[in-house]
Design a protein around this nucleic acid. Structure first.
Length: 596
DNA sequence: CTGGGGTCTT
DNA sequence: AAGACCC
């Protein structure tokens, strides 16, 4: 019997939760000063509102808005300065640790200060096998591997939070669920539990997405903001019956909204689809576009395939294999792992921007201030209490002794080897008196002097030495002219961390996924997936719910509504054509997708 | 008069 | 050292 075969690339064996703390910078201030919550409140850096709470958004304020516009729009807005980001970093670390404590695998990845992914596949799989399928409504979710009493009660026949698609037919109506559906249910309950704990114990609300990949979990969360959660439900795969929910969901997105496709790639793709240069938004929003080109527009284009994308998108600065990577993203394929928590950052940097910085005395003052911050931050982020060298240390009973001891028992987690100075020169005036704004940076690196690690010297004096003995010389390399420069930004960084022996690089070694080139890693897995559902394997849980597709079920299609495939002439409804077209396209690699 | 951070790749 | 990407 010949089964219908469709190339597939989905690997949906994982359950991934994506957290996004609601208006994070504003929430940090609100946690400290709850009265702000009921007011329109915004956080300012230089002349910009970097974020604002929802009370402010209700009055029209938005992220990255100019202060002047914000005040005009909402004169009573309360504004706090957030240029010193220490408090945000501290809060971010605290919340990250809190969430990480739920993980069994250590696969917990932070993006920026306010986003965290967790791969909770192991927790979900463990709990799936604990379920009593005759009484799903009275289930208990075990959050600890060791303690069967730790956890929460929940109804495993229902999803927690919102589904995608919205009209998803719930299992409590149909009564049966397949494995993937059950895993998404479990993921949604775990996510809800964590979200509530985060709010109750830390005072932060968050927006959450649950999916089988980093890409889907992150994007789907956006559907219910703020303090909501959304799960991408099966069937994820496109089949002869129609596009899967993963593709249906992605298809509506403007190309620039896809993580991994930044401004440059998005512009190239828009230009190609429109066959002319796409107009981009000159307003303040960075990736803004006036031309909406969607994933569907690109994916459905006859000439688009991985090789063509490689030709279109590669260029200076673009990584090898970009065409294939984008091709995967267009199809909702994202095999990237949630990376292991890192013990140390790969870089620490401090920067400030200036309307004008063009004299040596001012520069020295700024370098000094930046260097002080940098040394302080090195001590915060790279210094840990040393493990006690002897038992006496632990048994020491006098608090004073303890305090004294601690001062002298700090240890560097890592020694950065490189110091980097970056500037952003302001371009000279044009002949016509206007100025081209440039965001180009130039940098110079040098070995980081060892004295910086001394703990007996004060931060201030170390900073002064750093300026005199290293930074001034580095600045001369960048700007050999005695004068005439004008900087709009200065950044000081330490990089190239040499981690101290004995400390593992991550909680559990390197992220294996990142050690392979995506392409090599994925291509060797190429297989064709059989789409016909395999017979239910005994249990009711294996029975598939197939009624909740992402298209309108009751639409009758007349002959006029059929489309004709340009390659083989087969006629079929438009929704089926989506899947059918993939027959004729270079295949995306696939894995067997049956989750057992 | 577009922040202050980060990551990774070439 | 620079350029892409992320927040």
């Amino acid at each position: 019997m010949e089964k219908s075969r469709v190339p597939s690339a989905r690997k949906d064996g994982r359950v991934i939760i994506h957290f996004d703390y609601d208006c994070f910078y504003a929430s940090v201030f609100e946690a400290q000063t709850p009265a702000l919550k009921s007011l329109p409140f915004a956080v300012q850096q230089k002349q910009i509102i970097v974020t604002c709470n929802y009370e402010a958004r209700r009055r029209g304020l938005y992220k990255l808005q100019l202060i002047r516009d914000a005040r005009r729009m909402c004169p009573d807005v309360v504004i706090e300065l957030g240029e010193d980001i220490s408090r945000f970093r501290d809060a971010s670390k605290e919340l990250y640790s809190f969430l990480k404590a739920f993980s069994w695998s250590g696969k917990v990845e932070r993006l920026g200060f306010d986003e965290v992914w967790l791969d909770v596949s192991d927790i979900v799989d463990y709990n799936r096998q604990l379920l009593n399928r005759h009484d799903l409504a009275q289930s208990f979710f075990q959050t600890s591997r060791d303690d069967p009493m730790e956890g929460f009660s929940f109804n495993a026949s229902k999803l927690a939070g919102h589904p995608y698609p919205q009209n998803y037919k719930r299992a409590d109506v149909t009564g049966v669920v397949d494995d993937l559906t059950m895993r998404m249910f479990l993921g949604s309950h775990l996510a809800q539990h964590m979200r509530h704990q985060l709010e109750e114990q830390k005072g932060y609300t968050s927006t959450v997405g649950i999916g089988t990949t980093k890409l889907l979990s992150k994007l789907v969360g956006n559907l219910n903001k703020p303090k909501g959660q959304t799960t991408v439900m099966p069937p994820l795969d496109s089949s002869i019956d129609g596009p899967g929910n993963a593709q249906a969901f992605l298809d509506r997105h403007e190309i620039g909204k896809i993580p991994g496709i930044g401004f440059k790639l998005a512009q190239k793709l828009r230009d190609f689809i429109l066959q002319r240069p796409a107009a981009f938004d000159t307003g303040l929003v960075y990736g803004g576009t006036k031309e909406n080109v969607t994933i569907a527009d690109i994916r459905g284009h006859a000439e688009v395939n991985p090789e063509m994308l490689e030709r279109l998108l590669s260029g200076p600065g673009s990584p090898y294999g970009i065409g294939y990577k984008v091709w995967c993203l267009l199809h909702g394929v994202d095999d990237t792992e949630v990376s292991q928590a890192k013990a140390v950052p790969s870089q620490i940097s401090i920067e400030d921007s200036y309307i004008r910085l063009d004299t040596m005395p001012e520069l020295l003052q700024e370098l000094d201030a930046l260097a002080k911050s940098l040394v302080s931050r090195m001590r915060v982020d790279l210094l840990v209490e040393e493990e006690s060298a002897s038992k006496e240390d632990d048994l020491r009973s006098e608090p004073v002794d303890r305090a004294l001891h601690q001062v002298t028992s700090k240890k560097w987690l890592a020694h950065p080897k490189t110091l980097r100075l970056t500037t952003r020169p302001r371009l000279p005036l044009q002949p016509d008196g206007t100025r081209i704004r440039s965001f180009k940076r130039i940098s110079h690196s040098a070995p980081l002097p060892n004295f910086i690690f001394g703990l007996s010297e004060s931060v201030d004096s170390l900073a002064e030495r750093l300026v005199r003995e290293a930074l001034i010389g580095m600045f001369r390399k960048l700007h050999p002219e005695k004068s005439g420069w004008n900087l709009s930004l200065v950044n000081l960084a330490v990089t190239n961390m040499a981690e101290t022996a004995g400390e593992s690089k991550t909680a559990k070694g390197r992220d294996i996924g990142n050690m392979f080139k995506r392409q090599d890693d994925v291509l060797k897995d190429f297989q064709v997936r059989e789409v016909s559902p395999s017979p239910a394997e005994g249990s009711e849980l294996e029975t598939q719910v197939v009624t909740g597709g992402g298209w309108d079920e009751d639409v009758e299609l007349g002959d006029d509504d059929l489309e004709c495939c340009g390659d083989c002439g087969t006629r079929m409804p438009p929704f089926a054509m989506v899947a059918h077209r993939r027959f004729h396209l270079p295949a995306v690699p696939a894995l067997q997708n049956h989750c057992t």
